[in-house]
Amino acid sequence: MRLSPSDIQAILLTLKLAGVVTLILLVLATPLAWWLARTSSKIKGVISAVVALPLVLPPSVLGFYFLLAMGPNGPIGGLMHQLGWQALPFTFGGLVVASIIYSLPFMVQPLQNAFEAVDKNLLDAAASLGASVQHRFFSIAVPLSRAGFLTAIILTFVHTIGEFGVVLMIGGNIPGVTRVASVQIYDHVEALEYMQAHALSAVMLAFSFVVLLFIYTLRPAHKRSH
């Protein structure tokens, strides 16, 4: 069982997609999770529900709406066309945008749980000593939420790697651009190349197992140290 150059290209592309999506989501989801953890706003329920939607929606629903919205006749696609930008379907950027939405709850929810667990008295005490909002966030909330950040980052990363249905619908299967590992495996199976499908699947299986093992063996240890 050997990986072909196109398999390696697919793996690298998958890692690049997961990496870019995780970084962007870390920046976007942290303030959102912080707000959800602290707010008593009436729209909190609505926002929470929207964030959780990708957890329950079939990827075909997401893929279908992405394709319509980002297509030339859709609201996003029309706007991008007016701005003279390239249409998103069948591009790496399109996969990034779709994956951000697809993986959003995997970043927001662990962060939100971690932020909710931060002792409010500590934050209040720091505030009374004159610490700014940013200062309080970065020197109290972030260090106390280390485990939450780690879980959120790893889950987002592996969940993006595991993406298939959405990519199949909006990717267009272009080598090096949108042909990620999961789609490459599907193609191998369709072309009856079972050995190549095995090789790539085994890599995915081993990688996912190691990552999850890391999370599950690391997290209890961290809790004990509290």
């Binding site: 394709l67 319509l68 980002m70 297509g71 030339p72 006749n73 249409a87 379907p89 069948f90 199949l168 267009g172 299967n173 272009i174 599907y186 369709e190």
Partner: peptide
């Protein structure tokens, strides 16, 4: 080129105007 998984998906890519 963009590649449809089967010929129906290929038609759908063009039908939606994405190709």
């Amino acid at each position: 080129l963009v590649y449809g998984e089967n010929i129906a998906q290929t038609a759908q890519f063009v039908h939606t105007g994405n190709a």
